[in-house]
Design a binder for these strands. Structure first.
Length: 431
RNA sequence: UCCCUGGUAGCUCAAUUGGCAGAGUAGGUGGCUGUUAACCACUUGGUUGUUGGUUCGAGUCCAACCCGGGGAGCCA
């Protein structure tokens, strides 16, 4: 007999079913055990009675340790007393693999303990919900990109040099006497791909060796990076808000149950509406000063400043036109105001901070050469990148979206470390 | 790298001025009317992160070190 998934039980009431999973919890009285079975698709209450099994078997079933792998045979019934409204009256119990004493209990645990047991922590209800939301975000991105005619182009993980020349990179040996670096961004390669296929994107892991120690940082995280040929800053902002809006819609549409498990305030997500507010760096600085948060024009916005700006709006806010001095060398300068770069950061609501950074790229060879010198970067390293400006350069742009930061905001989680299956952080590489 | 903060039972935590190291939970045993983090009773469980110092006496005070957590900078 084929096994039934817990998620399919509501459609199987009245039928005999075989379930396979892990013993999540148990409550017992003199004549009954209530077994909570977890199979990855959901959790269901299963009823075992002493009358059906006899004293010895009944006692043994009451002693099966938590997280043992078990197979249960029984009949599905609708019952209001069961969590989820469906339960299974069990006629057969088989222990597939008896568990040792399980370290993670129903009570609270500290982050150190949980992170050291990430391989087991992943089984808990909230973590399962979070992984499903992450999956939905990634699927929404891919579906939506393809609907818009973008082509997925994978960027390399090994790179010969820094992409931006700013961040600290992880260095690895690359055969004899050569060094490679783990990528910190696929953007430069996406620029090359955009000149080949027009509208492209990549979605993959990214590595930053900065010793950042905050709830918003991982050393390895996933980034979604679209890039468009024949596009300016407005096109980039239009795509950013449409993609984010689609992601929110898809999660609300398909993962409502998981948001509820995580006790997310759904109204906060429903409040996200197009068009997103757009505010220039100029205006943001003015308004901050008007409200008594003194801030001098020219500096980069810090985390507390971002929190203030995002608190003005219920939707993500797009801050554009940063001082060029605080932005990367490849950012296009505003022809109307050379102090300003055509970049945009998207700040998530509720203080979650920057989830997107991007903008229009410098497409003029001479200007780009000048910037590479100013930033004291190696012209040799960027020879191929400069070629893109030699052979049919066009206005183009794109952005990078931090997948975990986006999931963190959507799910209302405290720390990005829970939003990736196996987080890599400063001082934490295990498991 | 800098600032703040913590390390006591498998886990989450308590321990007054320096004076016998405790509770909940998990595990074990027994009980219980279909339980909802079930409940009730009993019970096992300790080199207080490490090393050294002060003291009649240190979980508590001092020093160094080790390992975490939060934040800053940087960024997604």
């Amino acid at each position: 007999m084929a096994r039934t998934r817990v998620r399919d039980l509501p459609a199987a009431t009245g039928n005999e079913v075989v379930l396979q999973g892990w013993l999540y919890n148990r409550r017992s009285s003199k004549k009954m055990h209530f077994l909570q079975l977890r199979d990855g698709s959901g959790i269901v209450q299963c009823i075992v009675t002493k009358d059906d099994f006899g004293d010895d078997e009944f006692l043994k079933i009451g002693q099966i340790p938590y997280e043992s792998a078990i197979q249960l045979t029984g009949t599905a019934h609708g019952d209001d007393r069961a969590p989820g409204g469906v339960e299974v009256h069990i006629s057969g119990v088989e222990v597939i693999s008896r568990s040792e004493e399980y370290p993670i209990s129903k009570q609270d645990h500290g982050p150190d303990f949980l992170l050291s047991h990430r391989h087991l922590w992943l089984r808990s209800r909230k973590q399962v919900a979070l992984m499903r939301i992450r999956d939905e975000v990634i699927r929404a991105i891919r579906d939506s990109m393809h609907d818009r005619g973008f082509t997925c182009i994978d960027a390399p993980i090994f790179t010969p040099s820094s992409c931006e020349g700013t961040s600290t990179l992880f260095e690895v040996d690359y055969f004899d006497e050569e060094k490679a670096f783990l990528t910190q961004s696929g953007q430069l390669y996406m620029e090359a791909a955009a000149m080949a296929l027009g509208d492209v994107f990549c979605l993959g892991p990214t590595f930053r060796a900065e010793k950042s120690k905050t709830r918003r940082h991982l050393t390895e995280f996933w980034m979604f990076e679209p890039e468009m040929a024949f596009a300016d800053l407005d096109d980039v902002m239009n795509l950013a808000e449409q993609m984010l809006s689609t992601i929110v819609e898809r999660v609300l549409e398909n993962r409502l149950e998981d948001l509820e498990i995580l006790e997310r305030d759904i109204d906060k997500l429903k409040a996200v509406q197009l068009p997103f507010p757009r505010i220039s760096y100029d205006d943001a600085v003015k308004r901050m000063n008007e409200e008594g948060h003194s801030f001098e024009w020219g500096g980069d916005l810090g985390a507390p400043d971002e929190a203030i700006i995002s608190s003005w709006f219920p939707s993500p806010v797009m801050v554009h036109g940063y001082p060029e001095a605080v932005k990367a060398f490849y950012m296009k300068r505003d022809p109307d105001d050379p102090r300003v770069a055509r970049g945009v950061d998207v700040l998530a609501p509720e203080g979650y901070g920057e989830i997107i950074g991007g903008g229009q790229r410098e497409d003029d060879l001479e200007v780009l050469l000048e910037r590479i010198q100013q930033h004291q970067l190696s012209e040799e390293d960027f020879r191929w990148y400069l070629d893109l400006r030699r052979f049919g350069s066009v206005p183009h742009g794109g952005f990078g979206l931090g997948v975990e930061r986006t999931v963190c905001w959507l799910a209302g989680i405290e720390h990005v470390r829970e939003c990736i299956p196996f987080p890599r952080m400063l001082y934490r590489l295990y498991p």
